[in-house]
Computed example of a mutant assay.
Amino acid sequence: MMHIGYTMMTEQAGPRELVGHVVEAERAGFDFSVISDHSFPWLEEQGHAPYAWSVLGAAAQATSRIPLMTYVTCPTFRYHPAVIAQKAATLQLLSEGRFRLGLGSGENLNEHVVGAGWPSARVRLAMLDEAAEIIRALFAGGYVTRHGRYFPVENARLWDVPDTPPPVGVAVSGPRSCALAGRHADLLIATEPRRELVQAFEAQGGAGKPRMGQLPVCHDTDREVAEARAHAQFRWALGGWRVNSELPLPASFDQASQHTRPEDVAKSIPCGDDVGAVVDAVRPFVEAGFTDVALVQIGGDSQLPFLRWAETRLLPALRDL
């Protein structure tokens, strides 16, 4: 059965609102939740970027059932992997075993703030590979000292270690990242329903492990309002990963998407209150072999109507998949 999740999108809501939204998502019956980890919104129209790890700590205390997960955090620029390991272990304890650590190679949009430069995708994946090894070693307990190519670690140790470490997910977009995920990940993370990603992950050691995707939607009883909101806040998404990982500022995404029309966005994002349109958009993930899909409702002020709609109409329809 496909598991349906809810996304706390930090780019479009403040910290208190995000916690309130995930509380309502738990009540509505979502199977899990994920949160983005940004230092900038994609576009200025979104208007937010609170610290995801503080939100997660509050969410762990405000909820009791729904799993929590980073989707995704970059453990190579803003955060040293040893710090990520400590944060993840603490979240696993606070949530009583409900936390999963999603990792990725990051976006320039968020990581440029520490002034460390932005190397090629190949280098970023090599850094992620090394970071994942360090995090795994710290989850295992004891002291860790390593002098790798990218991250020195000197007598690091986690003093509060959960009995069951957080499962680790790795975001993928091609063969190299799938190979990395096969070595390190307990679950696959992707944003597109591409069967070849699932197959590559399984061939590299991921057979039988969960595969998670993500889908933006824009619910509103007025379809035109939904399309306008999706265009205003999510037109950046049509740029594709190779573009979106490289641009440094919201103004860059605004300029890159200036010729994107509302009808272009509406072709790729279900807009309105047509349950069937969302089901049709989720189905390719099922057919590609994904086990989980996290929905993103576009618009911070529209979350509660979306969650009521999801509880009464959308989730029952998606369960039939």
Rank of each mutant, 00 (worst) to 15 (best):
I4H: 03
I4C: 02
G5P: 06
T7D: 08
M9H: 13
M9I: 11
M9V: 10
E11R: 09
E11F: 11
R16I: 13
R16C: 12
R16G: 13
R16M: 10
R16W: 11
L18K: 02
V19C: 11
E24Q: 15
A25L: 08
R27D: 15
W42P: 04
Q46K: 08
Y51T: 05
W53K: 02
W53L: 05
S54W: 08
A60L: 02
A62M: 09
P67N: 12
T76Q: 15
H80F: 02
A88I: 07
L91Q: 00
G97I: 08
G102D: 09
G104L: 06
E107K: 00
E107R: 00
E111T: 00
V114T: 15
G115L: 12
G115M: 05
S120N: 05
R124T: 06
I135H: 04
I135D: 07
G141C: 06
G142W: 10
G142M: 09
R149Q: 15
R149N: 09
Y150P: 14
F151A: 07
N155V: 05
W159S: 08
P162V: 07
P162C: 03
P166H: 11
P167R: 04
A171D: 10
V172K: 06
V172C: 15
V172D: 13
H184M: 02
A185Q: 11
L187P: 00
V198P: 00
A203V: 04
G206T: 07
A207Y: 00
G208T: 01
G208K: 01
G213S: 07
H219D: 12
R223C: 02
E224V: 10
V225E: 14
A228W: 09
R229Q: 11
A232V: 14
F234N: 13
W236M: 09
L238K: 04
L238M: 09
L238I: 15
G239V: 11
W241E: 12
N244W: 10
L249I: 03
L249E: 14
A251H: 14
A251R: 15
S252W: 13
F253E: 09
D254E: 15
T260C: 12
P262R: 11
K267H: 14
S268K: 07
D273H: 06
A281F: 03
A281E: 00
P284M: 11
P284T: 04
V286T: 13
E287Q: 00
T291W: 05
Q297W: 08
I298C: 12
F306G: 07
W309M: 09
E311G: 06
T312R: 15
R319S: 14
